[in-house]
């Protein structure tokens, strides 16, 4: 696949859930400085499933952290829906994450002291609000967690834990769900279940999902794959297949030497 066309901000007819414009992010200073993001501009359509891929140190995790308001940017702006998040203080960012963003992590990150159900309701509990019971019931049914609700995380398998994490991420109907290598710690079967659920939540519930992964078959579940290398977007695939993803990766792995360690 040729890389001749420089990636441009994707302008779609649908509303954009997350918008990044001219993002710069560097770590360290002087000679030890590592530039993780170089002038990245990207939009993520509402109701779409987007994967971010790239080799180690390409900046894909940094991009996600900046988009999710977990990391600050040096230059550029990030908007979640209509809200510009760059420049918000910690309190406002915290509230934004609580109300508008869902997270799924590689290590599941469930609270061991809480039951599966309590973990699912955690964001609402923190906010001091009541989750929509019908919505929660629907997610739980979709994820097939009904008979696991009273279990503690240690009593659940990895796949079940990640499904609980998925339910938690969706529980508040966030503007966008960020998934950081959600299948990284799972076997193939559990991976498939989680990915199929993410796919369904986009198709059936209109959820917006941004997923960082290095697994081509995981990326193949997405509507679109954005490739990062050396802090820049180098490729943008729509309706990808696993083979197309692998081809693309192979393509720029040959051309782009492995970048230095970035966070």
């Amino acid at each position: 696949m040729p890389l001749a066309n420089p990636p441009a901000p994707q302008l779609t007819r649908t509303r954009s859930a997350v918008t990044a414009a001219n993002l710069w992010r560097a770590y360290g200073s002087g000679e030890a400085q590592v530039v993780a993001l170089r002038d990245v501009s990207v939009q993520f359509a509402s109701g779409a499933f987007t994967a971010i891929m790239g080799p180690s140190g390409s900046g894909k995790s940094t991009l996600m952290h900046c988009l999710a308001g977990l990391d600050t940017t040096d230059r550029g702006t990030v908007r979640i829906g209509e809200t510009a998040i760059t420049g918000l203080n910690d309190k406002a960012l915290t509230k934004l994450r609580r109300d508008k963003i869902g997270f799924i992590f590689q290590q599941f990150n469930l609270l061991p002291t809480l039951t599966a159900e309590e973990n699912i309701l955690l964001p609402a509990s923190i906010a001091g609000t009541k989750a929509d019971p019908e919505w929660i019931a629907r997610i739980i049914a979709t994820l097939d967690l009904a008979d696991r609700l009273t279990h503690k995380p240690t009593e659940l398998s990895g796949g079940q834990q990640q499904r609980v994490a998925c339910a938690r991420a969706l529980a508040t109907r966030p503007e966008v769900v960020f998934a950081d290598e959600p299948t990284g710690n799972l076997d193939t079967r559990s991976s498939g279940e989680v990915l199929r659920f993410l796919r369904r939540s986009v198709d059936d519930f209109g959820q917006t999902i941004v997923m960082v992964t290095h697994d081509p078959s995981a990326a193949a579940h997405a509507d679109r794959v954005v490739f990062l290398a050396d802090g820049q977007i180098v490729e943008d695939l729509h309706r990808p297949t696993a083979d197309a993803v692998i081809d693309t990766m192979r393509g720029f792995e040959n051309r782009v030497p492995l970048a230095g360690e970035a966070r």
């Binding site: 977990l70 609580r98 869902g102 609270l111 964001p123 923190i126």
Partner: peptide, 16 residues
């Protein structure tokens, strides 16, 4: 640390 990070990530305020 990780748990606290998660709680903060999903919206727990510093005060909480």
């Amino acid at each position: 640390t990780r748990e606290l990070g998660l709680l903060r990530a999903i919206g727990m305020t510093r005060g909480q």
